[in-house]
Design a protein around this nucleic acid. Structure first.
Ligand SMILES: [Zn+2]
Ligand SMILES: [Zn+2]
Ligand SMILES: [Zn+2]
Ligand SMILES: [Zn+2]
Lengths: 166, 166
DNA sequence: TCTCAGTCGTTATAATATAACTAAAGGCGA
DNA sequence: TCGCCTTTAGTTATATTATAACGACTGAGA
């Protein structure tokens, strides 16, 4: 409807997040996919968080900006962002985290990003790593039994360096 | 109800499953944990299946034997079986599979079983492996960044040897 | 016998995710 | 510009997975 003075609430994101969103927009443009306003908001809300966020947490926040957002609104955005590799799903938490790699990657969109996640049970933080030893060990183990791997989930729960001090 | 001996439904399990259940019973006795009838039925239903089974699938089957089984009935049994290491949860499927290792293990109950799962997207079969390369690679990667791992999930999705033929 | 921990029955509800249908918006050739 | 088609989004309802809460029963040991 209205466009000139459109949003009641200002764009909620920090400068860091805004910079990442700009890169995400450029990334999508290059892939001819569309980072629409809803998708951008959802990505921003995910990137802004220091921890993985659940779909319904996203929904709660999104509603500050889009009053009639509903579960499908969020899940569609999540599906898009997953398909573009801009976020990851943490299976053990049914929650989502921004990809620490996608916006840094200079190898093109088919670069075969394999991530592993370290989940701190102390503080809830999740860090993403790309460890080639793990990647190779998995590929080898699969090959050994004639299994052709397509995609893998590696989630390591434990205590981060900071939380071991307490 | 004209059948001769009006018996309740017979124990539904195959000889193989029954043998495993016997070992599970002995295992629990040794640990002074109790494999009650409900827990035994749930374990049997899981072991019997060639694929991971969801909690509500278990519930549907369980109701043939315990008419008033409810979700907590199943989830309590699952929690027990997980705590004893008799089953595993496949995170990507929200489903459960019998442990291929626990009843074979002669190292005692604290033997530190680390499993990885290969999930075939063709036939739905899941196989459990214990690959020390993967286990070590994960431990090393965690140590590298000062993270103290406690437990890890490794789920590899792809095509099993059989499904690559089709 | 009493008590306590563990287990189970029961009802209700929370948390996560998708189906199905309609409408609007955007891209694109005629 | 127009019409056409594809993608995206709104909306309502529902499916799927999991847990809270409370009372009753059981069996082992003081
Ligand atoms: Zn990533
Ligand atoms: Zn921590
Ligand atoms: Zn196992
Ligand atoms: Zn297969």
């Amino acid at each position: 409807m209205l466009t000139s003075t459109a949003t009641a609430v200002q764009d909620p994101f920090s400068p860091d997040t805004l910079a990442l969103l700009d890169r995400a927009a450029a990334f999508c443009t290059a892939r001819t996919s569309r980072l629409t306003e809803t998708r951008r908001l959802v990505l921003g809300l995910i990137l802004q968080s220091s921890k993985p966020v659940g779909a319904y947490d996203i929904l709660d926040h999104l509603r500050q900006y889009q009053r009639n957002a509903a579960p499908p609104t969020v899940y569609r955005a999540i599906d898009f962002l997953l398909s573009q590799g801009l976020i990851h799903r943490i299976e053990r938490m049914s929650a989502f985290i921004g990809c620490a790699h996608r916006l840094e990657c200079h190898h093109g969109h088919g670069c075969g990003h394999r991530a592993q996640f370290l989940i701190c049970s102390g503080c809830g933080a999740v860090s993403e790593v790309e460890d080639s030893e793990i990647t190779h060990a998995i590929a080898d183990a699969a090959r050994k039994i004639g299994f052709k791997p397509h995609q893998s989930t590696v989630e390591i729960e434990g205590l981060c360096a900071a939380c071991q001090q307490g």
